[in-house]
């Protein structure tokens, strides 16, 4: 009967967990976020500790599989959702999210507290970090790195890039919008010219990034802050982001509180906490993005590229055109 001990152990662990959840008498602030934000190496644990230090509450991160997954989940749950806050949507999802009518104004001040390269003001969505999309390459093996999007398009076909699918991945959608914001109606032709250089189009960011690390491609679509990870954790500066003259498309990640939040006061307190120093200084080396507030940056960030121009469609533009643009992308690459 020894083989039964494992299931029993598992069962008792579950019961133990359930008991501890029921026994907590402090108010619980529930935040839905994407998995890597809440993971051990993400910002989640440090932020939880910092906020719990003076809220007399229990902060509970619920990790879902992706930012689009967070929105889908609160839409499915509707007004009965247990979530107080969702954290991890981005500007591309803002209009869709606002239209669900599930979110409430945060009531905190944004003006003067942000360090974003673009103007940002919204009474519902609170920015917490941001980044530039960029192509990453290994400076020890790749020469003739394109200095602009145009140069990438005109590069010989033996320059191999790996990208993500805009339907399943945030950077994938970012590149689609990047190309669209630079080339407008000419985007389909640009994609057709890029096609021979594209090794493959993966479902998620990591599928592409790991293929790049394995040497399957010369460049991978990621964030301009990716090299900072390799500097801080791997101790190598061989991975670099290619700076493009046309400017880089941005991602701004936001949080919002729900209209039916079970703990509205705590939620409002957290929304204000987001742009504070404690939260913002945790972001760079855990989420590997730029802090949305005025926190100091670690040394590893000082060598990163600083794009001359920041590109960003308005949330309304994205919501209105996303499906059409994706269909256009699909047709152009399927030729």
């Amino acid at each position: 009967m020894r083989f039964l001990s494992l299931p029993i152990l598992g069962l008792s662990a579950l019961i133990g967990f359930a008991a501890s959840a029921l026994a907590a008498d402090k108010p619980v602030l529930t935040i839905y976020t994407y998995d890597s934000f809440a993971s051990e190496w993400g910002p989640g644990p440090a932020i939880e500790k910092a906020f719990e230090a003076d809220c007399n509450c229990d902060l509970n991160f619920v990790a879902l599989d992706s930012s689009i997954g967070i929105l889908g989940r609160v839409q499915l749950e509707g007004s009965s959702s247990k979530a107080d806050i969702v954290l991890g949507l981005d500007t591309n999802l803002m209009t869709t999210a606002r239209d669900t009518g599930l979110f409430a104004p945060h009531g905190a001040s944004i003006d003067g507290r942000t360090a974003l390269p673009v103007a940002f003001s919204d009474d519902v969505f609170m920015p917490f970090d941001w980044g530039y999309f960029a192509f990453i390459y290994n400076s020890e093996t790749v020469t003739g790195v394109p200095a602009s999007m145009q140069a990438l398009i005109d590069a010989p076909d033996d320059l191999r890039i790996v990208i993500q699918d805009p339907r399943t991945s945030t950077p994938g959608l970012g590149l689609l919008l990047w190309v669209k914001s630079v080339y407008g109606d000419k985007a389909p032709e640009v994609w057709a010219k890029l096609a021979p250089k594209i090794v493959t189009v993966t479902k998620g960011w990591w599928d592409a990034y790991s293929m790049f690390l394995e040497g399957e491609a010369d460049m991978v679509l990621s964030y301009s802050t990716s090299p900072a990870y390799h500097i801080v954790v791997d101790g190598t500066d061989k991975y670099k982001a290619a700076a493009f003259d046309e400017g880089h498309y941005m991602q701004v990640e936001v949080a919002a509180m729900l209209k039916n939040a079970p703990q509205p006061e705590l939620a409002a307190k957290f929304m204000d906490f987001i742009l504070g120093d404690q939260f913002q200084s945790i972001i760079p080396t855990t989420n590997w993005m730029y802090p949305a507030g005025n926190a100091a940056l670690p040394d590893a960030f000082s060598g990163l590229i600083t794009p001359s121009k920041s590109l960003l469609f308005t949330p309304d533009d994205v919501a209105a055109n996303k499906s059409g643009w994706v269909a256009e992308w699909q047709t152009a690459l399927s030729q």
């Binding site: 998995d35 993971s39 190496w41 879902l64 960011w205 590997w288």
Partner: peptide, 21 residues
């Protein structure tokens, strides 16, 4: 899955999402 209920593949997925090859 969630932070409270993880399995090994979920943990694997999380390490991937944070560059940890």
């Amino acid at each position: 899955g969630s932070q409270q209920f993880q399995t090994l593949p979920w943990l694997l997925y999380q390490t991937m999402a944070r560059y940890r090859a």
